[in-house]
């Protein structure tokens, strides 16, 4: 296991570039079509977070895109939660909180229920960004404490 800050070897990085694309597309697909096929916002968000974790491990946490995503993750988490709430509040325009306020479409298509799709996307944003933010924080903390442990050990032996 390579250091999460430094990234891994070129072979891993090249393979990750390909797999990452597929992972992100799969995650988006699972979230977008959650109302037709198994999956949904939660599963799609977790898949996206998994892709971000993979990119972090392969490329290291300091490289451009990964660092940007990591910085934005905690904001995106809040954005997803607020979007869910906003969709719920818009339900008052129809009848009451979380009431479906968008018309149904043709059955078995992406637009068959745009209300559920929107909610799925909000949940996807929330779960994906939240999981990744938690992952980044835990990894950074574990690394800092293990470094501190190693240093204090060295002092005792000296």
């Amino acid at each position: 296991m390579a250091d999460p800050q430094g990234g891994m070897s070129t072979i891993v990085q090249v393979v990750t570039r390909w797999v990452l694309l597929l992972t992100l597309v799969f995650g988006l697909g699972v979230a977008f079509f959650g109302h037709l096929t198994p999956g949904g916002g939660f599963a799609g968000g977790v898949v996206l977070a998994c892709g971000a974790v993979m990119a972090t491990l392969a490329f290291g946490a300091r490289t451009g895109p990964v660092a940007k995503v990591r910085k934005a993750a905690s904001s995106l988490d809040a954005v997803g939660a607020l979007a869910f709430l906003a969709i719920g509040l818009l339900g008052y325009t129809a009848a009451h909180f979380l009431q479906r306020w968008l018309e149904l479409g043709e059955a078995f298509t992406l637009g068959s229920t745009r209300f559920v799709v929107l909610l799925n996307l909000a949940v996807m944003l929330k779960v994906g960004a939240g999981l990744f933010a938690g992952f980044a924080a835990i990894v950074a903390f574990a690394r800092a404490t293990s470094d501190a442990d190693e240093k204090s050990d060295g002092k005792e032996q000296a």
Binding site: G34, H35, L36, T37, P38, G39, G40, G41, D77, A78, G80, A81, F84, L85, G88, L98, R100, L104, G105, A107, F108, S112, T113, F115, V116, L119, N120, V123, K126, V127, G130
Partner: peptide, 27 residues
Amino acid sequence: TGAANVVTAILLDFRAYDTLGEATVIL
């Protein structure tokens, strides 16, 4: 609900309150 996947139909339409609570817990 228009959602062919009954699980999603329940989670995000019939019982969206449950999902709201779940989202709050995760947040």
